[in-house]
Simulated assay, not measured.
Amino acid sequence: MISRLWAKLGKSSPKAEMPQLDKVPDHVAIIMDGNGRWAKDRGLPRIAGHHTGMKAVKRVVREADRLGVKYLTLYAFSTENWKRPKDEVDFLMRLPQQFLEIELEELIENNVQVRMMGIKSDLPSYTIDALEEAMERTADNTGLVLNFALNYGSRKEMIDAIQAIAGDVADGRLTPDQIDEQLMSERLLSRDIPDPDLLIRTSGELRLSNFMLWQLAYSELWFTDVYWPEFNEAHFQEAVLQYQSRKRRFGGL
């Protein structure tokens, strides 16, 4: 992969050939990984990597919008991330507030709609307040949907959906033969958005990390060694070009 070679040389990828705008994926999901390692390589605290990573978020949101992506889901904080040191978790909980304080007006100007999927009840009030304000102020926007997966875990999401369906069966609102893929999808936190067409993961890790396990069943996967704080428009274009070069058969021929 081109980005792997350039990462080993300590450089960003050269600007990629421009993607075909009529074949851009509708929904791109990103596991934003490598903030801590980026900071460590520079002798900085991990939180410096998270802070710099906000600039990458801005770059990618702008580029996704420019290319015509309709949905962009960013894995911002997992249900497992609570295991990290308290000072790091506290900093991560402040990032949505900091990002939206700086970027919300531009998001509104560019017709971006902000959404969030995850377990709100465990989040600090200042995190929820910032997200709810952004969601309220952008609710009528009709452009790119910027969906933050915050305090999100796919196994928890699926268990909650299954328990809700089981409750409906027990109460007589559903019969077992009514349970199908569509019903399951409608009970997930992503019920209002299509499944991702393309998943991007940065930093060289090759796993899904409990992210959208149901929804990624037929998504195209693209991995890069580039750490998230260094991820830029050219890398995003490279991922989209790779997506456009693949044939999606969905189990068929």
Rank of each mutant, 00 (worst) to 15 (best):
L144S: 06
L144M: 10
V145N: 12
N147C: 10
N147D: 08
L150A: 07
S154F: 03
S154D: 06
S154M: 06
R155L: 08
E157K: 09
A164F: 01
I165V: 15
A166C: 14
D168I: 01
D171E: 15
D171G: 10
G172R: 03
R173P: 00
R173E: 15
R173Y: 13
R173F: 14
P176L: 02
D177E: 14
D177Q: 13
I179L: 05
E181Y: 02
Q182E: 14
Q182G: 05
S185E: 12
R187N: 13
S190H: 00
S190Y: 03
R191Q: 07
D192Q: 07
P194E: 09
P194N: 10
D195K: 03
S203V: 15
E205V: 11
L206F: 15
M212H: 02
M212V: 01
W214C: 08
Q215R: 09
L216C: 04
W222G: 03
T224L: 01
T224A: 02
V226F: 04
Y227S: 13
W228H: 10
W228S: 13
W228K: 08
E230K: 14
E230F: 04
E233V: 07
V240P: 04
V240W: 06
V240E: 04
Y243T: 13
Y243H: 10
R246M: 07
R246P: 07
K247I: 14
G251E: 02
G251L: 01
